[in-house]
Amino acid sequence: MGRFHRHADGTVHSHSHDHDHDHDDGHDHDHPHDHRDVGDHSGYATGVERVEVLEAILGENDRVAAANRAELAGHGVRTVNLMSSPGAGKTSLLRRTIPALAGRLRVGILEGDIATSIDADALTDLGAAVSLVNTADGFGGECHLDAVMVRSGLTRLPLADLDLLVIENVGNLVCPAEFDVGQDTRAMVYAITEGEEKPLKYPVMFRTADVVVVNKLDLLPHLDFDLDGFRANLAAVNPTATVIELSARTGDGLDRWLDWLTSVATG
């Protein structure tokens, strides 16, 4: 028996080192001892035991997200996690959306930003309940919303009086895609000013979205933007995404977005 050996069967046994072998670790031990073994004893000198974990790295976030989802469902609220890069037009789209849904759906907004209430202020007095979460305020200035931050924002919303909650995530094409916050569905806003290659550069975000809103379409005549090339790049990473092309500035194409939100809220 060498210095390195494995016990794969997990049995408890004792054995003494009565055979000849050299230790290169500078000490000798000939005492009998027990191994309650789980896996790999790669060295007696360090006395290390391997413990199997097999747990999702974001498992705790996922548990809180599931609780958020259950709480929202308990109030009959359907939830959209709205993501995009900074400046793609999430807030502009919501400024159009909230008044247009008045009388159709009762809408709440959970506004996520690293700092400032600029976006939350822009959405106030339009007819939606707004709850602001600043990630710089007790959440380390994170570049995304996680489930715990959303849980804190939910406490400031009248959930019993809502049909639809839109979580406006922090503007960022990378991190928000990794965190479940308890939404029913994910939508992202992409602006044609961002370039047609973005789905290939940020595939996780584009793949995670159930709906991709293609915004700023009113600028198409002024840009060297290849709309068909963009559609092909998006289809390559996410062939099942629903694509809604619109202009939040002019309101063109908004109806399909409103219909989709309504189907989410009533589905």
């Binding site: 006395g47 290390v48 391997r50 413990v51 974990v53 790295i57 974001l58």
Partner: peptide
């Protein structure tokens, strides 16, 4: 995206 195992001191 998984924590597979840990090594702990006996």
């Amino acid at each position: 995206f998984l924590i597979e195992s840990i090594d702990v001191a006996e």
